[in-house]
Design a protein around this nucleic acid. Sequence first.
DNA 1: AATTTTTCTGCGGGTTCCCGCAACGTCCGT
DNA 2: ACGGACGTTGCGGGAACCCGCAGAAAAATT
Lengths: 254, 254
Amino acid sequence: MKVLIIEDDPLHRSYLNEAVRAALPECETVLEAENGHAGERLARDYRSAHVVMDLQMSPRNGIEAARTIWKERPETRILFWSNYSDEAYVRGVSRIVPQGAVYGYVLKSASDDRLRLALRSIFIESQCVIDREVRGMQQKSLGNANGFTDAEYEILVDIALGLTDRAIAQRRNLSVRSVQNRLQQLYEKLDVYRSLGHDPDDGRFNLRARAVAVAFLRKLLNHSAIERAEADLAGWLARQSASSRDADPFLRDG
Amino acid sequence: MKVLIIEDDPLHRSYLNEAVRAALPECETVLEAENGHAGERLARDYRSAHVVMDLQMSPRNGIEAARTIWKERPETRILFWSNYSDEAYVRGVSRIVPQGAVYGYVLKSASDDRLRLALRSIFIESQCVIDREVRGMQQKSLGNANGFTDAEYEILVDIALGLTDRAIAQRRNLSVRSVQNRLQQLYEKLDVYRSLGHDPDDGRFNLRARAVAVAFLRKLLNHSAIERAEADLAGWLARQSASSRDADPFLRDG
DNA sequence: AATTTTTCTGCGGGTTCCCGCAACGTCCGT
DNA sequence: ACGGACGTTGCGGGAACCCGCAGAAAAATT
């Protein structure tokens, strides 16, 4: 058995290395990579089926790396080992895990024992292990009680990137009015209206900007989420301006 | 000599502990705290004059902790030991270091030797040590070549919090038009206009929201900066609504 | 198939934002 | 003292945004 470690912090990396060797005596090789790119390359070259990785890395964070690894080999087992249970990360991971894949998500604050158990559960017994705290976040996020629809999350990202209503409409194939409807849903769910003591009507907020702010404060968005979204947007813009030279740009006006 | 370590990651904490003992044989006591609050308390109780701390902690990050520590005892020597050289952190630190204080800022990616040298320089020889990369960021940030004025940074924070032009005007004692002028400066400096390929005029951005987005991408803003700003804003709002019950709320309309 | 529920869409108006234009004040330097 | 650079403020208009209303379309339920 081979295990691939993708983690940018040297201290954490060597700690992981030791933990893996201690927990998995049947593991004869431990590979190490210090960022997403190197990790993807090693995973491809060595056909690693067992990966444990951090999420917050640069360049190329864990979510992007995991996506390409899983795209090439969906049966790969990945244990995410992160400092944070930000909703942005949890949602990002849930979004990319393939059908029936075995994976795990444990926090770095977990005990050595928990980490050992998670390693054995995932790599030996093919059982998913999601940290209690992360699981809670997942349910809050996906259970549509006070959670967010994909549509709502999508539009949140779009305004966080600074797109106008019209641009969002084009991108998502909607009318401008529909975009505004979704924005209103978003504003209500984020509780933007009474987000800070607004006794009189003077201390007022720009709803759009305020929504992004509270999303950040609630860790619904974080840097890496914005980074990924920006890259997607850049790609879309490129495709857009390429096709607008061939086709009629007013297709959606009828 | 006593040294106080404030760092939330256990691995990094014990590494620091070892590094301190190795670099400073004259140090007989090493205290540890795992977040800003605990750190402030220890610093106060033990009158620590030598502190090394992380920046990104929760609750109460390094900048806030350092501010209160320095407020109580400005001659305290603090070495910041952080993963990042985000402009937001660098600016946040520069903002709070007292006149003539001795401090340092080294990245966690630095070698053991660099850390050792920094510890001795700051605590023994009273000499500031700023990591090369951080120093570069500092100059770029403060040198007003392509750097940002305090006024510009201030208004950036305000729109990131979601305030309207009018609210900003009230808060900063300006007219609405002046606020808009500063916004325009900000937009130009952030290069919001051609930030992404905008071949036609259709792929358009909401300038205000876009400015916040690129500020985040450039790490001019980050989570802790927003958190601090939000706390400040809450305080101001409280004071505001308190005084508006006594005084005439239309003072600034003449 | 019929009905309910949800989502999408156009219209209209009130508000906020973006910004060019012009006037005024302060602080410089020659 | 004069002229210029810079920051602040008011005015005005065009664009974008927020959102209630109501009909159309789609999806879910019965």
